[in-house]
Amino acid sequence: MTELNTLGLAEARDALRRGDATSVELTEACLRAVEGAGALNAFVHDTPDIARDQAKAADARIKAGDAPAMCGLPIGIKDLFCTKGVPSQAASGILNGFVPEYESTVSQNLQDAGAVMLGKLNMDEFAMGSSNETSVYGNVINPWKTDGRDLTPGGSSGGSAAAVAADLCLAATGTDTGGSIRQPAAFVGITGIKPTYGRCSRWGIVAFASSLDQAGPMTKSVRDAAIMLETMCSHDPKDSTSADLPVPDFEAMLTGDIKGKKIGIPAEYRMDGMPDAIEKLWSDGADMLRGAGAEIVDISLPHAKYALDAY
Protein backbone atom coordinates (compact mmCIF):
# COMPACT_ATOMS: atom_id res chain seq x y z
CA MET A 1 0.00 0.00 0.00
CA THR A 2 1.12 3.55 -0.70
CA GLU A 3 2.53 5.35 2.34
CA LEU A 4 -0.34 7.52 3.55
CA ASN A 5 1.82 10.66 3.93
CA THR A 6 2.52 10.63 0.18
CA LEU A 7 -1.17 11.15 -0.66
CA GLY A 8 -2.53 14.46 -1.84
CA LEU A 9 -5.53 16.17 -0.23
CA ALA A 10 -8.08 14.91 -2.79
CA GLU A 11 -6.89 11.29 -2.63
CA ALA A 12 -6.74 11.32 1.17
CA ARG A 13 -10.17 12.98 1.45
CA ASP A 14 -11.69 10.31 -0.77
CA ALA A 15 -9.90 7.51 1.12
CA LEU A 16 -11.23 8.84 4.45
CA ARG A 17 -14.76 9.10 3.11
CA ARG A 18 -14.61 5.58 1.73
CA GLY A 19 -13.32 4.34 5.08
CA ASP A 20 -10.09 3.01 3.51
CA ALA A 21 -8.01 4.96 6.03
CA THR A 22 -8.50 6.98 9.19
CA SER A 23 -7.23 10.44 10.02
CA VAL A 24 -5.31 8.92 12.94
CA GLU A 25 -3.44 6.64 10.51
CA LEU A 26 -2.76 9.52 8.10
CA THR A 27 -1.58 11.71 10.96
CA GLU A 28 0.73 9.04 12.42
CA ALA A 29 2.28 8.50 8.96
CA CYS A 30 2.98 12.23 8.67
CA LEU A 31 4.33 12.52 12.23
CA ARG A 32 6.77 9.65 11.46
CA ALA A 33 7.85 11.41 8.26
CA VAL A 34 8.37 14.70 10.15
CA GLU A 35 10.46 12.91 12.77
CA GLY A 36 12.71 11.40 10.13
CA ALA A 37 13.22 14.64 8.21
CA GLY A 38 15.01 16.83 10.74
CA ALA A 39 17.79 17.41 8.20
CA LEU A 40 15.43 19.51 6.06
CA ASN A 41 14.73 21.88 9.00
CA ALA A 42 11.21 22.44 7.63
CA PHE A 43 9.16 21.93 10.82
CA VAL A 44 10.31 24.20 13.66
CA HIS A 45 7.53 23.79 16.27
CA ASP A 46 6.04 20.29 16.22
CA THR A 47 2.54 19.86 17.66
CA PRO A 48 2.02 16.06 17.71
CA ASP A 49 -0.35 16.16 20.70
CA ILE A 50 -2.64 18.71 19.02
CA ALA A 51 -2.45 16.69 15.79
CA ARG A 52 -3.45 13.43 17.48
CA ASP A 53 -6.40 15.07 19.29
CA GLN A 54 -7.59 16.76 16.09
CA ALA A 55 -7.23 13.50 14.13
CA LYS A 56 -9.39 11.62 16.64
CA ALA A 57 -12.03 14.37 16.53
CA ALA A 58 -11.92 14.35 12.72
CA ASP A 59 -12.46 10.58 12.58
CA ALA A 60 -15.51 11.00 14.80
CA ARG A 61 -16.88 13.71 12.48
CA ILE A 62 -16.31 11.56 9.41
CA LYS A 63 -18.04 8.63 11.09
CA ALA A 64 -20.99 10.90 11.92
CA GLY A 65 -21.24 11.90 8.27
CA ASP A 66 -20.20 15.51 8.95
CA ALA A 67 -17.00 15.77 6.95
CA PRO A 68 -16.03 19.01 5.22
CA ALA A 69 -13.36 18.73 2.50
CA MET A 70 -10.35 19.27 4.76
CA CYS A 71 -11.63 17.06 7.58
CA GLY A 72 -8.90 14.80 8.96
CA LEU A 73 -6.19 15.98 6.56
CA PRO A 74 -2.78 16.68 8.20
CA ILE A 75 -1.18 19.96 7.16
CA GLY A 76 1.63 22.29 8.22
CA ILE A 77 1.19 25.96 9.10
CA LYS A 78 3.76 28.62 8.20
CA ASP A 79 5.25 30.25 11.31
CA LEU A 80 3.85 33.62 10.14
CA PHE A 81 0.31 32.57 11.20
CA CYS A 82 -0.65 33.15 14.83
CA THR A 83 -1.82 29.87 16.33
CA LYS A 84 -3.40 29.89 19.77
CA GLY A 85 -1.16 28.36 22.42
CA VAL A 86 1.55 27.44 19.88
CA PRO A 87 4.71 29.55 19.38
CA SER A 88 4.41 31.89 16.39
CA GLN A 89 7.69 33.67 15.76
CA ALA A 90 7.72 34.58 12.06
CA ALA A 91 11.15 32.87 12.21
CA SER A 92 12.52 35.81 14.19
CA GLY A 93 14.42 35.95 17.45
CA ILE A 94 12.47 39.13 18.28
CA LEU A 95 9.31 37.04 18.83
CA ASN A 96 11.11 34.32 20.79
CA GLY A 97 8.73 33.07 23.47
CA PHE A 98 5.63 34.70 21.96
CA VAL A 99 2.62 32.40 22.33
CA PRO A 100 -0.51 33.94 20.76
CA GLU A 101 -3.76 34.04 22.71
CA TYR A 102 -5.68 33.96 19.43
CA GLU A 103 -5.90 32.06 16.16
CA SER A 104 -5.48 33.61 12.69
CA THR A 105 -8.69 33.56 10.64
CA VAL A 106 -7.16 31.37 7.92
CA SER A 107 -5.87 28.71 10.34
CA GLN A 108 -9.19 28.92 12.24
CA ASN A 109 -11.07 28.25 8.97
CA LEU A 110 -8.88 25.21 8.35
CA GLN A 111 -9.34 24.02 11.92
CA ASP A 112 -13.13 24.48 11.72
CA ALA A 113 -13.12 22.35 8.58
CA GLY A 114 -11.40 19.58 10.53
CA ALA A 115 -7.82 19.96 9.26
CA VAL A 116 -5.09 18.49 11.47
CA MET A 117 -2.14 20.76 12.39
CA LEU A 118 1.20 18.90 12.51
CA GLY A 119 3.22 21.96 13.49
CA LYS A 120 4.70 25.27 12.42
CA LEU A 121 6.91 25.64 9.37
CA ASN A 122 10.19 27.46 8.84
CA MET A 123 10.39 30.58 6.68
CA ASP A 124 12.51 33.66 6.02
CA GLU A 125 12.50 36.03 9.01
CA PHE A 126 9.32 38.15 8.88
CA ALA A 127 8.79 36.75 5.34
CA MET A 128 11.61 38.94 4.02
CA GLY A 129 13.73 36.77 1.78
CA SER A 130 13.50 34.35 -1.10
CA SER A 131 15.94 31.59 -0.14
CA ASN A 132 14.97 30.73 3.45
CA GLU A 133 18.44 31.69 4.67
CA THR A 134 17.39 34.53 7.01
CA SER A 135 15.53 32.39 9.57
CA VAL A 136 16.43 32.36 13.26
CA TYR A 137 15.86 28.58 13.07
CA GLY A 138 18.51 28.20 10.35
CA ASN A 139 18.30 27.36 6.64
CA VAL A 140 15.68 25.08 5.13
CA ILE A 141 17.05 22.42 2.78
CA ASN A 142 15.34 21.55 -0.51
CA PRO A 143 14.47 17.82 -0.51
CA TRP A 144 15.60 17.64 -4.16
CA LYS A 145 19.28 17.19 -4.99
CA THR A 146 21.18 17.29 -8.26
CA ASP A 147 24.52 16.39 -6.61
CA GLY A 148 25.83 16.34 -3.06
CA ARG A 149 25.16 20.03 -2.43
CA ASP A 150 22.30 21.35 -0.30
CA LEU A 151 19.92 23.45 -2.40
CA THR A 152 17.56 26.23 -1.32
CA PRO A 153 13.81 25.54 -1.40
CA GLY A 154 13.24 29.24 -2.15
CA GLY A 155 11.34 31.53 0.19
CA SER A 156 9.89 33.02 2.12
CA SER A 157 7.54 30.00 2.46
CA GLY A 158 10.55 27.66 2.16
CA GLY A 159 9.61 25.39 5.07
CA SER A 160 6.11 24.91 3.62
CA ALA A 161 7.55 24.12 0.19
CA ALA A 162 10.13 21.61 1.49
CA ALA A 163 7.62 19.91 3.81
CA VAL A 164 5.04 19.35 1.06
CA ALA A 165 7.63 18.25 -1.52
CA ALA A 166 9.12 15.76 0.97
CA ASP A 167 5.66 14.35 1.87
CA LEU A 168 5.95 15.40 5.52
CA CYS A 169 2.42 16.77 5.28
CA LEU A 170 -0.35 16.61 2.69
CA ALA A 171 -0.33 20.37 2.18
CA ALA A 172 0.75 23.57 3.92
CA THR A 173 -0.22 27.20 4.25
CA GLY A 174 2.03 29.83 2.73
CA THR A 175 1.90 33.59 2.39
CA ASP A 176 2.86 35.67 -0.61
CA THR A 177 3.68 39.38 -0.76
CA GLY A 178 6.03 39.47 -3.74
CA GLY A 179 6.39 35.81 -4.70
CA SER A 180 6.76 34.00 -1.37
CA ILE A 181 4.37 31.16 -2.34
CA ARG A 182 4.92 31.01 -6.09
CA GLN A 183 8.72 31.02 -6.14
CA PRO A 184 9.34 28.31 -3.48
CA ALA A 185 6.54 26.16 -4.99
CA ALA A 186 8.42 26.36 -8.30
CA PHE A 187 11.79 25.59 -6.64
CA VAL A 188 10.53 22.29 -5.18
CA GLY A 189 8.07 21.29 -7.92
CA ILE A 190 4.74 21.64 -6.12
CA THR A 191 1.62 23.77 -6.68
CA GLY A 192 1.14 27.13 -5.01
CA ILE A 193 -1.24 29.98 -5.65
CA LYS A 194 -1.42 33.56 -4.42
CA PRO A 195 -5.15 34.30 -4.51
CA THR A 196 -6.62 37.65 -5.48
CA TYR A 197 -6.05 40.21 -2.73
CA GLY A 198 -8.94 40.17 -0.25
CA ARG A 199 -9.88 36.49 -0.67
CA CYS A 200 -8.03 35.36 2.46
CA SER A 201 -8.27 37.31 5.67
CA ARG A 202 -4.97 38.77 6.87
CA TRP A 203 -6.13 38.78 10.49
CA GLY A 204 -3.62 37.03 12.73
CA ILE A 205 -0.90 36.86 10.08
CA VAL A 206 2.25 38.85 10.94
CA ALA A 207 2.24 41.67 8.37
CA PHE A 208 4.96 42.41 5.83
CA ALA A 209 3.31 44.80 3.31
CA SER A 210 -0.37 44.92 4.24
CA SER A 211 -1.66 46.05 0.84
CA LEU A 212 0.03 43.09 -0.88
CA ASP A 213 0.07 40.22 1.67
CA GLN A 214 -2.13 37.21 0.94
CA ALA A 215 -2.22 33.70 2.34
CA GLY A 216 -2.52 30.77 -0.03
CA PRO A 217 -2.23 26.98 -0.23
CA MET A 218 0.90 24.99 -1.11
CA THR A 219 -0.10 21.55 -2.31
CA LYS A 220 0.78 18.51 -4.42
CA SER A 221 -1.69 19.24 -7.24
CA VAL A 222 -3.93 21.93 -8.70
CA ARG A 223 -7.02 20.06 -7.44
CA ASP A 224 -5.57 20.06 -3.91
CA ALA A 225 -4.91 23.81 -4.17
CA ALA A 226 -8.55 24.38 -5.17
CA ILE A 227 -9.83 22.32 -2.23
CA MET A 228 -7.62 23.98 0.36
CA LEU A 229 -8.03 27.53 -0.97
CA GLU A 230 -11.81 27.26 -0.74
CA THR A 231 -11.49 26.47 2.97
CA MET A 232 -8.95 29.25 3.59
CA CYS A 233 -11.06 31.98 1.91
CA SER A 234 -13.73 33.87 3.79
CA HIS A 235 -15.12 37.32 4.32
CA ASP A 236 -13.79 38.48 7.67
CA PRO A 237 -15.01 41.61 9.49
CA LYS A 238 -11.68 41.60 11.35
CA ASP A 239 -9.84 42.48 8.10
CA SER A 240 -11.28 45.64 6.52
CA THR A 241 -9.80 44.71 3.11
CA SER A 242 -11.34 41.24 3.13
CA ALA A 243 -13.54 40.71 0.04
CA ASP A 244 -17.27 40.53 0.78
CA LEU A 245 -17.92 38.19 -2.15
CA PRO A 246 -19.23 34.63 -2.15
CA VAL A 247 -16.43 32.03 -2.31
CA PRO A 248 -16.96 29.87 -5.39
CA ASP A 249 -16.57 26.08 -5.53
CA PHE A 250 -13.03 26.21 -6.94
CA GLU A 251 -12.77 22.42 -7.34
CA ALA A 252 -15.93 22.30 -9.47
CA MET A 253 -14.31 24.88 -11.77
CA LEU A 254 -11.47 22.47 -12.67
CA THR A 255 -12.99 21.31 -15.94
CA GLY A 256 -9.64 21.12 -17.71
CA ASP A 257 -11.25 22.88 -20.65
CA ILE A 258 -9.44 26.03 -21.83
CA LYS A 259 -10.69 25.99 -25.42
CA GLY A 260 -11.13 29.50 -26.77
CA LYS A 261 -9.50 31.20 -23.75
CA LYS A 262 -7.17 34.09 -24.60
CA ILE A 263 -3.89 33.89 -22.66
CA GLY A 264 -1.52 36.86 -22.67
CA ILE A 265 2.24 36.47 -22.36
CA PRO A 266 3.80 39.72 -21.12
CA ALA A 267 6.93 40.68 -23.05
CA GLU A 268 8.41 42.31 -19.93
CA TYR A 269 8.52 38.99 -18.05
CA ARG A 270 11.04 37.60 -20.52
CA MET A 271 14.22 38.96 -19.01
CA ASP A 272 17.35 39.71 -21.03
CA GLY A 273 19.87 36.93 -20.65
CA MET A 274 17.29 34.31 -19.66
CA PRO A 275 18.94 30.86 -19.92
CA ASP A 276 17.95 28.80 -23.00
CA ALA A 277 16.52 26.04 -20.82
CA ILE A 278 14.05 28.48 -19.26
CA GLU A 279 13.23 30.06 -22.66
CA LYS A 280 12.37 26.56 -23.84
CA LEU A 281 10.11 25.92 -20.84
CA TRP A 282 8.24 29.13 -21.67
CA SER A 283 7.72 28.23 -25.31
CA ASP A 284 6.85 24.62 -24.43
CA GLY A 285 4.26 25.95 -21.98
CA ALA A 286 2.75 28.22 -24.63
CA ASP A 287 2.65 25.28 -27.06
CA MET A 288 0.85 23.12 -24.48
CA LEU A 289 -1.77 25.83 -23.96
CA ARG A 290 -2.15 26.27 -27.73
CA GLY A 291 -2.48 22.51 -28.11
CA ALA A 292 -5.34 22.53 -25.59
CA GLY A 293 -7.20 25.06 -27.70
CA ALA A 294 -6.23 28.37 -26.07
CA GLU A 295 -5.25 31.42 -28.06
CA ILE A 296 -1.82 32.83 -27.14
CA VAL A 297 -1.49 36.61 -27.40
CA ASP A 298 1.73 38.58 -26.96
CA ILE A 299 1.03 41.51 -24.67
CA SER A 300 3.00 44.30 -23.02
CA LEU A 301 2.82 45.46 -19.40
CA PRO A 302 4.82 48.68 -19.72
CA HIS A 303 4.75 49.43 -15.99
CA ALA A 304 6.15 46.04 -14.98
CA LYS A 305 9.59 47.55 -14.39
CA TYR A 306 8.17 49.76 -11.64
CA ALA A 307 6.68 46.81 -9.73
CA LEU A 308 9.82 46.17 -7.68
CA ASP A 309 10.18 49.88 -6.83
CA ALA A 310 6.56 50.08 -5.67
CA TYR A 311 7.01 46.84 -3.71
Binding site: T196, Y197, S240
Partner: peptide, 26 residues
Protein backbone atom coordinates in the same frame (compact mmCIF):
# COMPACT_ATOMS: atom_id res chain seq x y z
CA UNK B 1 -8.38 47.30 -4.67
CA UNK B 2 -8.30 45.09 -7.76
CA UNK B 3 -11.94 44.23 -7.11
CA UNK B 4 -14.45 47.08 -6.86
CA UNK B 5 -15.03 47.69 -3.16
CA UNK B 6 -15.15 50.46 -0.60
CA UNK B 7 -13.48 50.43 2.76
CA UNK B 8 -15.86 48.78 5.21
CA UNK B 9 -17.60 50.83 7.89
CA UNK B 10 -19.35 49.61 10.99
CA UNK B 11 -21.23 50.96 13.95
CA UNK B 12 -18.94 52.69 16.45
CA UNK B 13 -19.59 50.21 19.25
CA UNK B 14 -17.45 47.96 21.41
CA UNK B 15 -17.12 44.55 19.76
CA UNK B 16 -14.50 42.95 21.95
CA UNK B 17 -12.87 43.38 25.32
CA UNK B 18 -12.60 42.18 28.92
CA UNK B 19 -9.52 40.16 28.08
CA UNK B 20 -6.92 41.79 30.29
CA UNK B 21 -5.28 38.47 31.16
CA UNK B 22 -4.97 37.41 27.53
CA UNK B 23 -3.66 40.81 26.44
CA UNK B 24 -0.96 40.84 29.11
CA UNK B 25 -0.05 37.14 28.92
CA UNK B 26 2.93 37.78 26.64
Amino acid sequence: SVTPQRLKRREDVVTDGDQQGAVLSN
